[in-house]
Design a protein around this nucleic acid. Structure first.
Lengths: 200, 200
DNA sequence: CCATATTTGTACCGACTGGTCTAATTAAAG
DNA sequence: CTTTAATTAGACCAGTCGGTACAAATATGG
């Protein structure tokens, strides 16, 4: 029998729901309805709900990485400015069509870290791998900025990334309960006040 | 009929499980078994699972607040040092008996913010109220430190608190997936590098 | 045009979900 | 000592959970 459904479609649709509602708060049946496929087909594509979740994370990171690389590798702009654009991009995304949505959804990686990071080994492993890769890209830009003396060298680049990313995650947690984008804006200001070198 | 169970016991026991496993990943039945009470009694104490959750949050914050006030109001120590002790306390807690536990559990407020903040109005409201109160205490100490010129005045105290707390939350998210306490240690160093005034 | 391999569609599984109902129990009030 | 009100205990509810089994459908290789 010829394939009638595409796994990417199912991943895309499921991602949207789980991102918004959380892993344990979303049932398989809801995802089936959303994707418009019967259960038998679902388990033809995925071994389990966990398997789907891992594929969703992979897919999510792949999307994010593309945007990230585009911004961070634009060598016509200074390293610090590239970093600013990168974080600014997330906020802008939230301000537009996503205003109410990103406030609701937060970051899928952060959501999953909190809900599953400590209780599911496979998913923790998946997240750590992706986090490391993404952090690597950012750290490279930071190093570049440190060499150009426009980013603080109080801490090594790897640690500055951890700080920035943790900070961003925690702020999204605040965004969710306050239902406001303001914490992100404030965090942006403060993060770069910390990062940028004031006295060159 | 005389009361046979104490609501505080049920809250305490349930808190432990939900803190570790999450809200949607924990069923009422499991909490009943853990608390050793039958279902009928449970619904005599709580209107619903949501009602229990709110009472758990209240209870959690009450505990945290007591510790916090004890540390933050110790006027024999400088404001900055008090803040350091406050965050240091969390890390130490995690290092001791809780080493593997706090890594697993994270912070109940952060967990709940991420899992329920955007999809449950009552719980979001509860969290926001508590967050505001706790932030108020910390902000006061920060203001004191700013007056004594030992804490940066690049930003107003209220914003510095938001920054510190968000940072702390996000770091706990990292702690969960990495299953390591190291991110907290690093975050402590960097947070206070930002907060403390270098050139008085 | 038939055999094979694969996918689809759906009924079904036992376990569990949050929550209700009510009989039995018991302390305190009159 | 009886009435009243509160509490306990657990059977029970419809609905959902993640997952399985298997027949029907169909594209492709021979």
């Amino acid at each position: 029998m010829r394939k009638k459904y595409e796994i990417e479609d199912i991943i895309q649709k499921s991602q949207e729901v789980i991102w918004r509602k959380g892993y344990h708060n979303t049932g398989i049946n809801e995802l089936l309805k959303e994707s418009g496929i019967p259960k038998g087909s679902f388990y033809n594509f995925f071994e389990s709900k966990e398997d789907l979740m891992i594929k969703i994370i992979d897919h999510y990171v792949k999307e994010q990485r593309e945007i990230m690389i585009e911004i961070l590798s634009n060598s016509s702009v200074s390293p610090l400015e590239r970093l600013k654009q990168f974080y600014r991009h997330s906020i802008d995304q939230a301000r537009n069509e996503l205003d109410r949505f990103l406030c609701v959804k937060g970051c899928l990686i952060n959501n999953t870290s909190v809900e599953l990071g400590a209780i599911n080994d496979n998913i923790a492993e998946t997240i750590n791998a992706h986090f490391g890769e993404i952090s690597g890209y950012i750290a490279e830009v930071i190093r570049e900025g440190q060499l150009k003396n426009e980013i603080t060298d109080l801490f090594p680049a790897e640690q500055l990334v951890e700080f920035m990313q943790s900070n961003y995650y925690g702020t999204l947690s605040r965004v969710k309960t306050t239902r406001s984008i303001e914490p992100l804006e404030l965090n942006y200001q403060m993060t770069f006040a910390f990062l940028a070198k004031s006295n060159p």
